[in-house]
């Protein structure tokens, strides 16, 4: 079995379903006689934590996130949210997709896109919905653009709309699937900082975030903890804490010695995971 690496790191909290999100032994095979995409993934996300999952491209990151979001069934294994095993998209989570051009609906205005997940909710009255929508749009800094069509906005603004939509849903956990991979570098920095601001503002009940990315720097800058996945079929290769001081800022955080240390370390892990384990001690993960 190839699960050695995964087992080692999960041993500490295996079976611990008290965290807000617990992923247990997830395996995915898209069709019989095809190789496994994920081979026994396990990890935990605690309340209020920002966890980044990184891994080489094609390693099954997006598959993993879709299973966690409940829109893809695992071949085996479970996802627990708030102590409950999920069997479909749970109301505690909202997912922001990389491809905002497909994820936003071009026939709806910005406002109606943000309202989309609330539109058919019977437990909220009209005023509550309007308030949530306005608040979410304000949070991402798009007040004034409510009546625009997504197609009239820049890529970065469109992704802000997608984030606002997820926030209007008021999830306990925000899932992000390579959310900034399709925007330019400067826009990306702005969006990263917006995400950190959003997190500060959300408070303890809704500031748990799980992001999938292939951008190591982004993961370090944003996350409290990083889960590194192996090459496919993916298992957890490494888990490490990011002990960067807060509040984080683009220039200072990215030149902090800790940032550079983790950066080098993750590169190492991703490049030569198995060799590194045998031949090279390296800094120990602190998770």
């Amino acid at each position: 079995m190839r699960r050695r690496a995964g087992e080692r790191h999960v041993a500490g909290d295996g079976g611990d379903r008290t965290g807000i999100l617990h992923v247990e032994e997830l395996r995915k095979r898209y069709a019989p006689d095809t190789p496994l995409v994920c081979d026994g993934l396990s990890f935990n996300v605690n309340q209020g934590e920002f966890v980044a999952i990184i891994g080489p491209s094609g390693c099954g990151k997006s598959t993993l996130l879709r299973m966690i979001a409940g829109i893809l069934s695992p071949t085996s294994g479970d996802v627990w949210v708030g102590g409950r095993r999920i069997d479909g998209p749970p109301p505690e989570m909202a997912l922001v997709f990389q491809d905002y051009t497909r994820s936003l609906y071009p026939w709806l205005t910005v406002e109606r896109n943000v309202r989309f997940p609330l539109a058919k909710r019977r437990d909220l009255d009209k005023a509550e919905k309007a308030e949530r929508v306005a608040e979410a749009i304000r949070t991402v800094g798009l007040t004034g653009f409510e009546k625009y069509s997504p197609g009239q906005l820049s890529g970065g603004m469109q992704q802000r709309v997608a984030i606002a939509r997820a926030l209007a849903f008021q999830p306990q956990i925000l899932l992000l699937d390579e959310p900034f991979a399709s925007v330019d570098a400067l826009t990306k920095e702005g969006l990263e900082d917006t995400l950190l601001d959003v997190r500060d503002r959300l408070g303890a009940s809704g500031n748990t975030m799980l992001m999938v990315t292939h951008d190591i720097d982004e993961a370090i800058y944003l996350a409290d903890r990083i889960v590194v996945l192996s090459k496919p079929p993916c298992v957890v290769a490494e888990e490490l804490s990011v002990d960067l001081p807060v509040p984080r800022t683009q220039v200072e955080s990215r030149s902090h010695p800790e940032f550079l240390r983790i950066r080098a370390y993750v590169h190492d892990v991703m490049g030569l995971t198995d060799q590194r384990r045998r031949t090279h001690g390296g800094p120990q993960p602190s998770a």
């Binding site: 829109i71 997709f97 491809d99 497909r102 989309f116 997940p117």
Partner: peptide, 14 residues
């Protein structure tokens, strides 16, 4: 219809 458009709605419990 693109898979992402459908998945988006499904992820919101639609």
């Amino acid at each position: 219809v693109h898979a992402t458009s459908v998945e988006t709605a499904r992820s919101f419990g639609v």
